[in-house]
Design a protein around this nucleic acid. Structure first.
Lengths: 235, 235
DNA sequence: GTCCCTTTGTGAACCGATGCACAAAGTGAG
DNA sequence: CTCACTTTGTGCATCGGTTCACAAAGGGAC
C-alpha cells in the first residue's frame, strides 16, 4: 500500500524529528517564562543546540506555524508541540523496581512536570513494599496487573534488576501496556506494536570511553600496540 | 586533507557501530559465562537484538576476527571489543551532584563493572558533604578541580540541578576533562573536542507519549480534532 | 500602493547507515 | 583430494536524515 501524503503533513513525522521536539519544547518553555512573545528559527535553534534549517524542517512537519519575516509565536508553538507529543493529556506512569534508581525516578521532579504522573510504585522485595516514597505507597509486584488496570497506567518504567525485566515486561504487555521505558541492562524481546525505549548508563559510559581513548591515543602517538591475543585475558 | 583508508580499518569506526559495540559485548559476556566457545553472527545478532548483516558489518570494522564456516571465538571477540572500547584500562569517574539520582548512580553496580571506577562524589550542599555513599566520602564542590586532578578523573557524570550543570561543565572542562555524561535537562554549550552524552528521562517519556498517543488515536478513529488555538492554554 | 528587509518553508544534493545477496573462505566427511 | 555445507565479509542498492541555498511570503516604512 503506497499512501502518498497530501501535503507532507498527515501523520508522517520522522522519528528523528520526534526525538527533538521535546528539546524545542523545553527551550520554548524557558522563553515563555522570560516573557518572549515570538522567536526566530535561528534563536530557537541556538537554544536547542541544533542547526536552524533542521529546526525549520522539523517544525514544518507539524504544519506551517511560523510567520515569514517574523518568526514563531512562542506560546502557540508550545501548544502545538505539546499537542503533537500528546502532552495535553495526562499519562499515568508506573515505576517497577524501587531500588536506588526507582527511588530517584519517583522523586525526580522534572519527571512529573508536564503531562506525566507517577501513579504507582511496585517492587518484589517485601522489605520495600509498604514504604512511602514521593507520596506513594510501594505495592507488591503481585498487584502489578490489578494496579495497571485500576489506575489506567499506559507507560511503564522498568527499574528492576536485569534478571527480572523481561518477565515484568511480558506481564505488563499482557495487560495491554505498549510503551515501556527500560533502565535494566537487557535487550527486551517484545511483540510487534510495543514501543521500548532504553536508557543504559553503562553503554553511555562505554561510548564515552571509546572516544576518550581515541583522544588520548592521538596524544601519545597512536595505538601502535601489538594486536595479538595476550596470554592472560583478565575479563 | 583527504586520507584514504588502506583497508577500511584504520581508526574509522562509524558512530552507529560504536554505539552498538557495548551491546554485543554484554551479550558475549553472557555467553562466555555460560561456557560458549564460539558463536555465529546469527546467534549473536539475535542476542543483541540486531540484524545479522549489520552485526557482521559492525565487527568487520574492528578487523577480520571471525572464521568462515565457524563463527567468532567468544572470548577473543570479548577481548577485541573491550580493547576497542577502551575497557582494558581503568577509567576514573567523578559524579557531581549527589541527589537522588547521583546516589543511585553511585550505588549502581553495573556502573562500576568493567573498566569504570567511581573515584569521587561531589556536591554543593553542606548537608550532603561528608556523607558516606557507596564507600566514598562526598566532597565539597569547591574541591572539584583538585579532586579531578588528584585522582586522574577523565569522565565526569553530571547529576546536578539544571541550573548548575553548565557552570560545573565549564569548570571540569577547564581542568582538562573532555568526556561528560549529562543527566541534567539542559543543552550544554561546550567547546570543540569535548564529548557530551545526554541522558534525559523526560525526553524519553515524551517520545513514548507521542507514539502512545498515535496508537490510541488510531483506535479511536484518528485525531479528527479541531486544530485551532483553544482559548485557554494551560501550560 | 511600492519597495526593502526579514524570515520561513522546501527542493535538491549529499552523507551515513541499513540490509540484501553473494562470492570467498573455511570445516568436515568420505 | 574432492565435494557438500556453513558462515563470514562486503559490494551495492536503498533509505532516512542533514544541510545548503533560495524562492515565496509577510511586515513595515513611506
Amino acid at each position: 500500500m503506497i499512501r502518498r501524503l497530501s501535503q507532507a503533513r498527515e501523520r508522517g513525522i520522522p522519528e528523528a524529528t520526534v526525538a527533538r521536539l521535546p528539546l524545542y519544547l523545553r527551550a520554548l518553555n524557558g522563553m515563555a517564562e522570560r516573557g518572549l512573545a515570538t522567536v526566530s528559527s535561528e534563536d530557537l535553534a541556538v537554544a536547542a543546540g541544533v542547526n536552524s534549517a533542521k529546526l525549520r524542517k522539523d517544525l514544518s512537519h507539524l504544519g506551517s506555524y511560523g510567520t515569514r519575516g517574523v518568526g514563531y509565536d512562542v506560546e502557540y508553538l508550545v501548544y502545538q508541540i505539546s499537542r503533537e507529543l500528546g502532552l495535553t493529556q495526562d499519562w499515568a506512569v508506573a515505576i517497577v523496581g524501587v531500588g536506588n534508581l526507582g527511588r530517584a525516578l519517583a522523586n525526580y521532579g522534572g519527571f512529573v512536570s508536564r503531562g506525566f504522573r507517577v501513579a504507582a510504585l511496585l517492587d518484589a522485595d517485601p522489605e520495600v513494599v509498604g514504604d512511602h516514597i514521593a507520596g506513594l505507597n510501594v505495592e507488591h509486584i503481585d498487584e502489578l496487573e490489578a494496579v495497571i488496570r485500576r489506575r489506567g497506567v499506559s507507560i511503564v518504567v522498568l527499574a528492576t534488576p536485569a534478571a527480572a525485566a523481561q518477565q515484568v515486561a511480558e506481564r505488563v504487555i499482557a495487560v495491554g501496556v505498549t510503551s515501556i521505558l527500560n533502565f535494566a541492562p537487557v535487550v527486551l524481546a517484545v511483540p510487534e506494536g510495543v514501543d521500548i525505549r532504553k536508557v543504559d548508563l553503562s553503554i553511555e559510559l562505554q561510548i564515552l570511553a571509546f572516544h576518550e581513548q581515541r583522544k588520548t591515543d592521538r596524544m601519545t602517538g597512536g595505538p601502535a600496540m601489538a594486536e595479538e591475543w595476550p596470554e592472560a585475558v583478565d575479563l
